[in-house]
């Protein structure tokens, strides 16, 4: 595995990584926003009523709509700033993976109930 990684990463990248890093980090931000909004919609009465965008679906409609908007807006913003640049992809990828891991944990009800 290590040998394979070394072998495939031995070539110099021919494209700037900014566009990919923007997509990766935005996905992490969007995932984390979903988890935070889900907790807010569950724990706060004001957030719960404010997140009802479509009555039959309840607060889930607002939680998911706002999370998707956060994801797309952060993606568009980062894409505009980074698309022609080479950025610290390692740090951005690590941050995105951490945010994704937190999202998986925070959507798990026993953990969400700690807040």
């Amino acid at each position: 595995m290590k040998a394979a990684d070394d072998a495939v990463s031995g070539d110099e990248p021919t494209m700037p990584n900014g566009s990919g890093a923007a997509a990766v980090l935005a996905a992490g931000i969007g995932s984390f926003a979903l988890a935070v909004l889900a907790i807010a919609g569950d724990k706060s009465a004001i957030a719960k009523s404010g997140l009802v965008f479509y009555t039959p679906t309840g607060p889930l409609s607002g939680v998911t709509t706002m999370a998707i908007l956060t994801w797309l807006l952060s993606w568009a913003t980062l894409e505009l700033r980074w698309r022609k640049r080479t950025v610290a992809a390692g740090a951005m990828s690590a941050l995105a993976i951490v945010l994704l891991g937190l999202s998986l944990l925070l959507t798990f009800p026993p953990i969400a109930d700690l807040f």
Binding site: D5, V8, G20, L104
Partner: peptide, 25 residues
């Protein structure tokens, strides 16, 4: 990311790791 980079991903080790991580998730 795959559509944008294609085979170039093999030279972008950190992006590749993140892409595979998100796919597993």
């Amino acid at each position: 990311v795959f559509a944008r980079y294609g085979r170039e991903l093999r030279n972008q080790r950190r992006l590749r790791t993140a892409v595979l991580g998100f796919a597993v998730a």
